[in-house]
Every structure is written in structure tokens, then in C-alpha cells.
Computed example of a mutant assay.
Amino acid sequence: MSGYSAAAVKFPFWFYEFKQTMEWQRDSEQWAQVKRHIIDENWFKLSSISRRQSLYSEVAGRVQSLTPAISNVFFKTDLDNQRLINLIGMMNTNRLFKAFILRTYRDELMLGDLKLEDYEIQAFFRQIQTEDDAAAKWQDETVQRLGSSFRNYLTQAGLAKLDGTTLLVTRPLLDPPLEDALVADNHQDYVAALTGR
């Protein structure tokens, strides 16, 4: 995968939609049926066809990125870990967000500061811009919107709480079967990032 994408500015956390799609898959619905639910039947009540197509593409990508072991854990774990599995799907499909979790979020846990200031989020994007030609062309507005998207992802995943403009980072409690499934899938990096080890 070459280059970083700023596409995250278009995609919300979409947990409810992810969960419903996971349920359709569990019930053996084919992707053509899932696509029909989302786009033709407008199951999630979106205002435009393009938004429905965008949601389908993004959420289907997240679900399809998960291994069977992680998908199986989804239906046996609590809501907090289900949100983490959605986040894992996002990390699997969004290289920029994955880098943010593996670098910036993990550092906050490891260093024990547990406060993610806006300047730290901006520093992450500036560093990416020095590493990647495509990212170097992002306008300031794009960087601001990416920062806002990532802050929302962290709060909706339960990895942080907002205190004014500061994110108070929280350490999630990974369900042992989810941790085992991640390790079995060679994602010790995800476990390390989410636990601060």
C-alpha cells in the first residue's frame, strides 16, 4: 500500500452500521444482499445515493478485513470490545489511522501522560507529511479535518474522553479472546498499541 490517504475526513465511526453489517454476514447474507439493504433499501436512512455507496464501501471493507477468529469474537464479547473490533477494521483499511494508533495513541499509554493535546495530533500529521509525498500536499484545512475525525474515532471507540480541547486517553480492557485472536493473526502490534505494552 503506497501513500497515505486523507479519505478519513469522509467516514464517521459508523459503529451501528458496522454492527448491522456484521449481523447480516453472520446470518449468511451475501454481499449483494448487504449492498441492496444499504444502497437500494436505504436501511440507514442516508440522504443521497453517493453517501449510501460510500457507507457500503467503507463498512464492507472493514468487515471483510477481519479474520474469521475476530469476527467470531465480535458476537461473544461486550459492547466496548465490539467498538474496538470496528476500530480494528478501520486500522486494517486505513493506513493513516493505523499509523496514528500505533504511534501517537500507543505513546500516550506508554509514557503515562494520558493527555492527547491538539498540538500532538497535529505533530503526527506534520511528521507524516515529511515522510510521504501525497501527504505533503495536504492543505491545512485537510489536516484539521483529519485531526477532528481521529479525535471522534477515539472518543467513539472508548479510547479517550473529551475534556475541553484535550483528549483524556483511556486504556481499553481487551477481552482475552480478542487479544488471542489478534496475536494469532500476527497483530501483536495492535495489542501493544491498545494496551500500551
Score class of each variant (00 low, 15 high):
2 S>D: 13
3 G>V: 04
5 S>E: 05
6 A>K: 14
6 A>H: 09
6 A>Q: 12
7 A>D: 13
9 V>S: 08
9 V>Y: 02
11 F>P: 00
15 F>G: 02
16 Y>D: 13
16 Y>N: 14
17 E>F: 01
18 F>W: 06
18 F>N: 04
20 Q>E: 13
21 T>G: 01
23 E>D: 14
23 E>C: 02
23 E>N: 11
24 W>S: 03
25 Q>L: 12
25 Q>S: 13
26 R>A: 11
28 S>Q: 14
29 E>C: 11
30 Q>Y: 10
34 V>P: 07
35 K>S: 11
35 K>I: 00
35 K>Q: 15
36 R>M: 08
36 R>V: 06
37 H>G: 01
38 I>V: 15
39 I>P: 08
40 D>K: 15
43 W>D: 14
45 K>D: 15
47 S>H: 15
49 I>C: 12
49 I>N: 14
51 R>S: 15
53 Q>M: 08
54 S>C: 07
55 L>Q: 01
56 Y>N: 05
58 E>Q: 12
60 A>P: 01
63 V>P: 06
65 S>Y: 06
66 L>M: 06
66 L>Y: 03
66 L>R: 09
67 T>Q: 12
68 P>E: 15
70 I>M: 06
70 I>C: 10
71 S>M: 12
76 K>W: 10
79 L>V: 13
80 D>C: 00
80 D>Q: 13
81 N>G: 09
83 R>C: 02
90 M>C: 02
91 M>K: 06
91 M>L: 10
91 M>I: 06
93 T>R: 09
93 T>W: 01
94 N>S: 15
94 N>C: 11
95 R>C: 04
96 L>R: 01
99 A>R: 06
100 F>D: 00
101 I>Q: 01
102 L>D: 04
103 R>L: 06
105 Y>R: 08
105 Y>S: 07
106 R>E: 01
107 D>T: 01
109 L>A: 03
110 M>H: 10
110 M>I: 09
112 G>M: 05
120 E>H: 12
126 R>K: 14
126 R>L: 10
128 I>H: 02
130 T>Q: 15
134 A>K: 14
134 A>W: 01
134 A>P: 03
139 Q>I: 07
139 Q>V: 10
140 D>I: 05
141 E>P: 00
144 Q>V: 05
146 L>Q: 05
149 S>A: 13
149 S>H: 04
154 L>P: 07
154 L>C: 05
155 T>C: 12
155 T>I: 14
155 T>Q: 15
163 D>E: 11
166 T>N: 07
167 L>A: 09
168 L>M: 11
169 V>F: 03
169 V>W: 04
169 V>T: 10
169 V>L: 06
170 T>D: 08
171 R>Q: 12
172 P>V: 03
173 L>V: 09
173 L>Q: 11
173 L>K: 12
174 L>R: 00
175 D>I: 00
176 P>R: 06
176 P>T: 11
178 L>V: 00
179 E>A: 08
181 A>W: 04
181 A>N: 04
182 L>G: 07
185 D>M: 02
188 Q>S: 12
188 Q>E: 12
189 D>E: 09
189 D>A: 11
190 Y>C: 03
192 A>Q: 07
193 A>V: 00
193 A>W: 03
197 R>K: 13
197 R>P: 05
